[in-house]
Design a protein around this nucleic acid. Sequence first.
RNA 1: GGCGGAGUAGCCAAGUGGCCCAAGGCGACGGUUUGCAAAACCGUUAUUCGCGGGUUCGAAUCCCGCCUCCGCCUCCA
Length: 472
Amino acid sequence: MRLFDTLSRQTRELRPLDGRTFRFYCCGPTVYGPAHIGNFRTFVLQDVLRRALEIGGMETLHVRNITDVDDKTIRDSRAAGVPLAEFTAGWTARFHADCARLGLLAPHVEPGAVAHIPHQIEMVQALLDRGHAYRSDDGSVYFRLASFPGYGRLSRLDQRELELGRTQATRANADEYAKDSLSDFVLWKARRAEDGEAAWDSPWGPGRPGWHLECSAMTRAYLGPDFDLHSGGVDLVFPHHENEIAQSVCACGGSFAAHWFHVAHLMVDGGKMAKSLGNLYTLDDLSARGWSPMETRHVLLGGHYRKPLNFTFDSLRAAREALGRLAEGEAALRRAAGIETSGAPAHGSLCGVPVGGGFEAAWQALEDDLNTPAALGEMFKALKRAGTASGADAAAAWRGLHAMLAALGLVLPDRAAAVEPVAPPAVRALAERRQQARAARDWAAADTLRDELAALGWTVRDAKDGYELIPR
RNA sequence: GGCGGAGUAGCCAAGUGGCCCAAGGCGACGGUUUGCAAAACCGUUAUUCGCGGGUUCGAAUCCCGCCUCCGCCUCCA
């Protein structure tokens, strides 16, 4: 697997530092509301990265945090009149439900910030001890940027630019007088009245961790000072990831993440997504409009992760059709190969086995900087080529297709499950009457009955012997 | 203002020096099939890659200028 690295600006081969397990960290959600499809673009791509590594035969250790204490969670839990822990637990459950619907593999470790306050305090103390941090009068602790010359390498900002941007930002927000330098950032925030109960004891008085510190402490706890990869949305490059590097390197030594993976933003109708524009969709919003999470996942895989992707309802329609074609191709291969079961091959049987059966190019596209759109394109080409295969060839193609589906995390719609059994008796009776009319060559009556079925939401699909009823 | 990313057919999108008169999906159109449809299958659908220059034997791909969109510039995936 070759992947672009934000820090070195190069596409590099991914190899586990310890030679065995690829250990990576993903910045997870802040649980103060439902995640939107833009958030999920990042999580889906992190999931595909892990799946592709595993299909490629690599062992992984996937850590993704839950940010359950910060300004927004505190603000909104207080507004709701609910204790912080209860408030974030609700949104965490919702996040997990959404992830499951999208077919995201659960991380091996999913640490929460609140559960790791001692780790964070320990890290702040280490930074103080080593002279990289200082206390302010109100009991907050700040990172001293001047003590870390490597700052700004990831986001390519030099000190002068930082100070410049800083001055502009501070004009509107004159709340930062406690710092020595304008660009210093907070490690530990002293408790303020508006924090309510959300405060923990520390050597510097009651307070709570700064957002950046949470991730640093959790990576240290589960991955140590050096690990394989760190990832998130592009907007986290600065300041979040830049600050994480500074904190972790200064507190623990080591070089922190060996590789940085950032996913570009999702746009809607060619513009940015924003609540105020009414185009910020959650999975539930799309479900309410009749679109399934898998269709959404297909849309999110439809563009390369380093380019902005334009989300439209037309692309959801296209995704629905494309998934249907894949499902039909899968069924055709299964029949041609004489495979009895309707399920996919066991996941374990696909890992570490070269992808074949005509799907080699699709796999190569994925291995080449996680090019999901090119991989999907190659899958359709392979499917077309395999159209006339039979026996062992069809079986190999079937396995190749399933290896790709497993790597992309796509679950195909089961069209067979959606037919007759679920049609209500009244609908089936209409369909039967139509069959009789057809047998009697009474086309006018048959067409009227077909219209009636359509009005009830059912499409009738005639076959050689009989018919199928398709909902919607 | 600084830094970074993007602009490819009706839509989504791959391709970053010759394999490109540009993949794939959707849509549209034509055909096979069908009582007619639907579904399926087959075929067609950009001599051209935001605009204008330039480099090169050769450019969507490199350089210069311009236009448009998006992101970041202290807590937004």
